[in-house]
């Protein structure tokens, strides 16, 4: 298996086959929260790709050079990763505010939300403990480039579904929906159909 093909599979698996929103049920709150319009979804997607990549890079370094050598990884990984993410988000927010006001206007309001986006913690944990979320117990260790490709895959999968779903929800506004199903319930029914479609990908790869 060539190197490029392996990276492609890793990316495809992370983004589509094991889609973080529809197959793994992670990060649903921002999903339903911001998907009411296409603009906010785009802003959120860009911010998530950006923060997630940075968070995984820092967490990977922290795990491999600090936590693991000291032997405290097993019980300190939750506090240290989430602290990394929370401070990173606040740091990024300050830097963007100072250096690029237009970017801050586009991304600013989504950044605090990302701290509680479980997808960021999930991707960071998964990149140092592969199989943690799929319970496969793989004794495999991602090298740094693999961890990066994996994280970008997760983030792109998140963005893909978020944007598709937002487009769908904008159309639903005009659709004749039974009275008590208007708003949130119909959005969940739509998500169920989306999820059904994505389950097909898992069958494609025989997972």
């Amino acid at each position: 298996m060539s190197e490029a093909w392996r990276y492609f599979l890793l990316f495809f698996g992370a983004s589509v086959v094991a889609n973080i929103l529809l197959i793994r049920f992670i990060a649903l709150c921002p999903f339903f929260g911001v998907s009411t319009s296409l603009d906010t979804s785009l802003g959120m997607s860009i911010s998530v790709i950006f923060v997630m990549t940075m968070a995984t890079s820092v967490s990977w370094i922290a795990w491999n050079y600090v936590l693991k050598p000291l032997g405290v990884g097993e019980f300190l990984y939750i506090p240290s990763f989430i602290l990394i993410i929370a401070s990173l988000v606040q740091f990024v927010e300050m830097v963007i505010k100072k250096t690029s006001p237009p970017l801050y206007r586009a991304m600013g309001i989504y950044l605090p939300l990302i701290t509680t986006n479980c997808a960021v913690l999930a991707a960071a944990t998964e990149s140092v403990k592969p199989g943690f979320f799929t319970k496969l117990n793989i004794a495999y260790h991602y090298a740094f480039p693999e961890a990066l490709v994996y994280t970008v895959g997760v983030a792109v999968g998140f963005s893909l579904v978020l944007i598709l779903f937002a487009a769908m929800r904008e159309r639903l506004e005009l659709a004749p929906v039974p009275k008590f199903f208007r708003g949130v319930p119909i959005a969940f029914i739509t998500a169920a159909l989306f999820s059904l479609a994505f389950m097909g990908f898992a069958g494609m790869f025989n997972l």
């Binding site: 029914i189 169920a192 999820s195 059904l196």
Partner: peptide, 9 residues
């Protein structure tokens, strides 16, 4: 997975 969404809906 879809069942979860439907139940919540």
């Amino acid at each position: 997975f879809p069942g979860a969404f439907v139940t919540y809906a």
